[in-house]
């Protein structure tokens, strides 16, 4: 069996962008990468929007397709069961909060059978309800309760999209490190865009991972939030 990485977290924590980047990275050494977009809650800004990019990297995208690609019905792609039992490198992008992680509860037996999995809690401390340990703790417990598997690590994803800078990343990451201690989970990665990655202090290099934002509309750059 190949690898399995599952990305969960609060709404808007950056799961989809992170999952797309991890999939593309994995595809540089594996010919059998499957990205399962199991966000059945909200079709706006889902990882299936990066379909062409993923296909160009020889990644199999498993997602609601055709007329259901922009639906909000709980449409779980049926091939997920068979693919879970096959030898491949799979990444699963879940929807936010506990409603999103219900799906992994349904698949939890297959996840355990497969073994060798990573279940990541993606945290952006600049999101509402993600700024203090208490609500993060509550979220973690809920996600594990409905997901029926335990988290193996945290992905620290501190950002303010276009307004992200190094100071903000380091300050946010520090908070995630504190949350991690409170949750007794290791921080496995710190995800940052290339411009930030290049100026990260050396001590972060072992966990830092460069990501590109694929779901962000390019016209947002400099379009002025207040117009």
């Amino acid at each position: 069996m190949g690898s399995l990485a599952i990305f969960a977290g609060g709404f808007g924590s950056g799961k989809s962008e992170v999952a797309i980047n991890f999939a593309i990275d994995r595809a540089s050494t594996s010919q059998k990468v499957v990205l399962a977009d199991l966000d059945l809650v909200n079709p706006f800004f889902a990882s299936r929007d990066a379909r062409e990019k993923l296909i160009s990297k020889n990644i199999r995208l498993l997602a609601p397709s055709g007329e259901l690609a922009f639906g909000d019905v709980p449409n779980l792609p049926t091939e997920i069961i068979a693919l879970m039992k096959q030898d491949n490198d799979m990444l699963i992008d879940l929807a936010g909060d506990e409603v999103g992680s219900l799906v992994i509860g349904y698949l939890s037996k297959l996840v355990k059978e497969r073994g060798n999995y990573q279940f990541y809690l993606v945290i952006n401390p600049y999101r509402p309800f993600a700024g203090e340990l208490e609500s993060i703790k509550e979220l973690k417990q809920l996600l594990e309760k409905v997901g029926l598997i335990k988290f193996t690590g945290i992905i620290s994803n501190p950002n303010m999209v276009e307004e992200t800078n190094l100071e903000l990343v380091l300050r946010g990451h520090q908070r995630v490190v504190e949350f991690a201690a409170g949750l007794a989970l290791p921080v496995k990665y710190l995800t940052v865009e290339e411009s930030i990655y290049n100026c990260l202090p050396y001590e972060y290099r072992n966990i830092a991972k460069k990501i590109t934002l694929y779901l962000r509309p390019s016209w947002l750059q400099g379009s002025g939030g207040g117009m």
């Binding site: 800004f45 999209v161 307004e163």
Partner: peptide
Amino acid sequence: EGTLGNLMEP
């Protein structure tokens, strides 16, 4: 528009 409701910005 629905997109604005779902768009994340600082």
